[in-house]
Structure formats: C-alpha cells, structure tokens
C-alpha cells in the first residue's frame, strides 16, 4: 500500500472515530464543562492527532483513545448512581453571598477576588451587591444569583393574574414543504392546512415558515415580503364582540320598562361579564 494511502485511511478513519466518540461522550456545552472534562477532550484530541500523524502506532493509539473515551462515560454513569462519586469528581458548589452578605472566606477558598465577583455579577446585569440575596459558584465556574424579592422582575403570579397555558407552536410549513409530523401532533391534516392557506390567499410554495398555535390559528411568513399577510386577529375580535354584547345587554335593560325583562337582561349581562373575564387570558396575550 503506498504511503499516502495509509496516511489518508488513518486520517479519515480516526476522523470518523472521533466524530462518533464525541457524540457518544455527551451533549455538555463546552462552557459548562468541568475543568476535568476539558482535560479529557484535550487528551482525546492530542492522541488522535498523534496517531493520525503516525507519531504513535495505530494499535496503542486506538487503545488509549478507547480508554479516554470510555472512562468519562463510565464515570458519568457512576456519578448518576452515587452522590459521593459525584461530589468527589465535580466538587460541590460554593456559596458566595448568603442573605445579602458576601462570604469573604468562601471567596478566598475558591480564589476569587472581589473584582472577579463584581465582574460576574455585572455580567448578570447586577451592579449593586445589595440587590443580591444569594449567590453561588457552581462547580463549572459559573456564578448564579438570586435577587432580593423586591428586585426580581414582576411575574404574572406577583400580579395575581391568571395566564393561559402557552403550548409550543408547531411549525407545519418550512421552506414551502408541509411537515406532516407536526400536523399530526395537533391532530390536523393537509386538507385543513390547504383550507387555511386558501383563506389567507397564499400558495404553499410562497410560504417560508408556517406555525400553528395552541388553538389552531395559522401564522405565516412568506418569501415574497411585499405581500402583507394579516396575522389572525380572531381571538381579539371575539373579545371585542363579547364586550359589545355586554354593552348591548346593559342598554336593553335600561330601555325596557318590563321589570321581568330588565332582570333577565341584567342577569345575562352579568354572565357575559364573567365569560369575558374567564376568556381574557386566553384571548388577549
């Protein structure tokens, strides 16, 4: 076999091998890696390079790669089984701020200076340490913070407001192609989509992205940006119509002189008001 062919085969073979190995080793993001994971990946890379460039013989090289690829997988499995192994390998998190007070000795223990801490806080948009209730240094080196309760962004729960569940929209058209799996997830079919597209006056091959929300409204983005597709406003329309009907009923009850009819109109107006309040989170986003 000519020399260039062996080099080529080795290179290509190892390339495939490493590609598969890294996929098997996990989905951890590089910035979320433990320092040891980084060492592990480096060793795998260097050994692969040495073997490919024939500094190392093929068999020992592949065996070494096998060990360094399998060991972390086994270690991961062990860590899932045992808390002790987990704490030993990845270390425990260190509390840096507790009850709004910076723990200087913990800071010294993980060799972080005050500037480091301030920089990390700033990267989380916190410029005042007094705003922080609790901060912790994760084993990956990331600092996570809990803001004081009066500094946290307002949530719907804080306002005591009910919100409708928001299901993920399904992408049913991509690049002019219908995605049947997404459609059947919603229990819909191609005919339904065809009707909707016809109603919007758009042909399928002009659609770049089409998404269906929880209740089955279709939102479109077209290739032809000069065409304006109106976003479905049916829910807003229902809400406005409910308001109108409520006002109508109040008006009827004022107009009539028949007490019995007045009562019925008033009762119905009250019912519609309740309906309106119940539907508000679902109809208005």
């Amino acid at each position: 076999m000519p020399e260039w062919l062996t080099v080529f085969l080795r290179g290509a073979g190892l390339w495939l091998f490493i590609l598969a190995a890294v996929r098997v080793m996990g989905k951890k993001h590089p910035s979320r890696m433990r320092p040891f994971d980084f060492v592990n990946y480096t060793v795998v890379g260097v050994v692969a390079a040495l073997t490919a460039s024939r500094v190392m013989a093929l068999v020992p090289g592949v065996i070494l790669l096998g060990v360094w690829i399998l060991s972390p997988i086994i270690l991961d499995l062990l860590m899932m089984k045992s808390k002790w192994v987990h704490d030993f390998v990845s270390g425990k998190e260190t509390v840096l701020i507790r009850q709004g007070k910076i723990m200087e000795e913990n800071l010294a223990q993980v060799r972080l200076t005050g500037e480091d801490l301030l920089r990390e806080l700033r990267s989380k948009s916190v410029f005042k340490t007094a705003d922080v209730e609790f901060a912790v240094l994760e084993p990956t080196g990331e600092i996570n913070i809990l803001l004081k309760s009066d500094q946290k962004p307002v949530t719907a729960q804080d306002l005591g407001q009910k919100t409708a569940p928001r299901n993920e929209p399904q992408t049913v058209i991509l690049d002019g192609n219908i995605i049947d799996e997404a459609l059947s997830n919603l229990g819909l079919n191609r005919e339904w989509l065809g009707t909707k597209l016809e109603a919007a006056g758009v042909s399928l091959n002009n659609v770049f992205i089409g998404q269906v929300d929880a209740v089955g409204d279709l939102f479109l983005d077209l290739f032809d940006d000069s065409l304006e597709v109106p976003a479905p406003k049916i829910k807003e329309l229902i809400y406005a119509n409910l308001e109108k009907c409520h006002a109508d009923l109040m008006g009827f009850s004022l107009q009539t002189k028949n007490q019995q009819a007045k009562d019925i109109f008033n009762k119905d107006a009250k019912k519609l008001l309740e309906v309106k309040e119940q539907l508000k989170p679902y109809l208005l986003k």
Binding site: A164, P165, K271
Partner: peptide, 19 residues
Amino acid sequence: VQTVDQEIKSVFSRVGGVI
C-alpha cells in the same frame, strides 16, 4: 375542537354553554 390542550378545551366548552 382544534386545540390539544385539555384546559383550553374545557374552559372554551364551558363558556360556550354559558353563552
């Protein structure tokens, strides 16, 4: 009918009854 979410389904059909 169209939604797969049980909560939306029940709220909308209950409200439909009231209307």
